[in-house]
Design a protein around this nucleic acid. Structure first.
Lengths: 219, 219
DNA sequence: ATTTTTTTGTACCATTTCGCATTAAATTCC
DNA sequence: GGAATTTAATGCGAAATGGTACAAAAAAAT
């Protein structure tokens, strides 16, 4: 039995949006929730320390199903990271777009960030980028590209915030939006790291408050 | 043959400082340089991805010798981390102690930090704490304690800097040394992460310059 | 009912991993 | 020179790892 083409050539244009009425045995998992479980594991333990057995147990999928659905371990890791970035972006994009005073926007962003970093039953989960992706970035060009993309995306979003605030007169003329944006990103990074060391939320919030004060002081 | 006491009880007070004239076969390695090699590996690949074979090859010691000299993998990791922290502290302590203007002190600290993070033949090595230790910190209390200690130590050192600067009138009365210290640490953290993503030194220096400008602006 | 298609479940394989047991080598003390 | 002692070197072994082959199962299509 030679199976050569993965997609039947006849079904070229038909793209069922809801219930594609798949042909064979139905899958016993939902890809989205499975990917979420994999993401949790990778985020907690990193790439190397997460075994396929762990992933299999957490997702409820056996190894061949995992492989068929997401590819090998590295592909699953990358898909998990993409998922993480999508979720984080979705949680922040509204705030970045919103037309609110600078301080309020910053406070809301950092509140979301703390929620992301501190959630998790078995300890704070930290930030995927900072905790594991940055480590892989040195040796893996694809992951490195994703990390760089994420870093500059955050810088840019903060940059728009500060430029906007400056135009509105919330910042002094001498203020440099790009530098402030880097400081805002740096504050994200430092709380991600500290969260991982189990620094309690109150302390992290104090650090954030101090940073916001410095970044917003229009003196 | 039962060997029970590791040290001969008779040599209680004698502590030869230079050449102890050891009794058996001389070791073929220097513990210090071997630990340095192990540190390089752990820093590059993290705990899980570094195998004892890798460590054995890099140090030139075979596995049992490694084991005898440093204990198991986790102990070696911890000793490597201690070594890293000692080196980093030694490289910075003079600058922190020095009595120089704030801006100059900060610039020198960041120059050292960049040197540490960007050195290495096979890509930038980044910061041990940020790259691998913070990941282990969630599950390993000992490593967590070391990470926390390192974080607060840096915060405190910067804090002294800023308090000192404020007393000297280099900062406005409204400036909060503690908040500025956290921002200074955050800048360390952000360049450590970016270095790992192979952001070139020039960009990192620009980020540092902007951060220093914000932290030093005495307006 | 039979065929086709897709997924599941079990089991397996080659490799790697950590740790240690054992023997050989090199040095000091007597 | 020989005993004692410390280290090096080889290699074993049990367990874990990433990946896959293969057959059974569950659905649609004919």
């Amino acid at each position: 039995m030679v199976q050569k083409n993965k997609k039947p050539p006849s079904a070229a244009k038909i793209e069922a949006p809801v219930a594609p009425k798949r042909r064979g045995r139905p899958r016993a998992y939902e890809p989205d929730v499975a990917l979420g479980k994999a993401l949790d594991l990778f985020r907690r333990d990193g790439f190397a320390a997460t075994s396929l057995d762990d992933l299999s147990a957490a997702t409820g999928m056996n190894r061949p199903s995992l492989y068929g659905a997401f590819g090998d371990k590295r592909e699953l890791y990358i898909k998990s990271y993409q998922r993480y970035r999508d979720d984080a972006r979705a949680a922040m994009v509204d705030i970045f777009r919103a037309d609110a005073p600078l301080r309020e926007r910053l406070e809301r962003i950092y509140r979301i960030a703390l929620d992301i970093y501190l959630s998790g039953e078995s300890g704070p989960r930290g930030c995927f980028t900072v905790m594991t992706a940055a480590s892989e970035a040195v040796s893996d060009p694809d992951i490195r590209a994703m990390v760089l993309e994420g870093l500059t995306e955050l810088d840019k979003a903060f940059g728009i915030c500060f430029r906007h605030a400056k135009e509105r007169g919330e910042l002094p003329d001498g203020a440099d939006p790009a530098s402030l944006a880097h400081l805002a990103s740096a504050t994200i990074h430092t709380i991600a790291i500290r969260a991982r060391a189990r620094v309690p939320r109150g302390e992290l919030e104090a650090i954030v408050k101090g940073a916001v004060d410095v970044m917003c002081r229009a003196k």
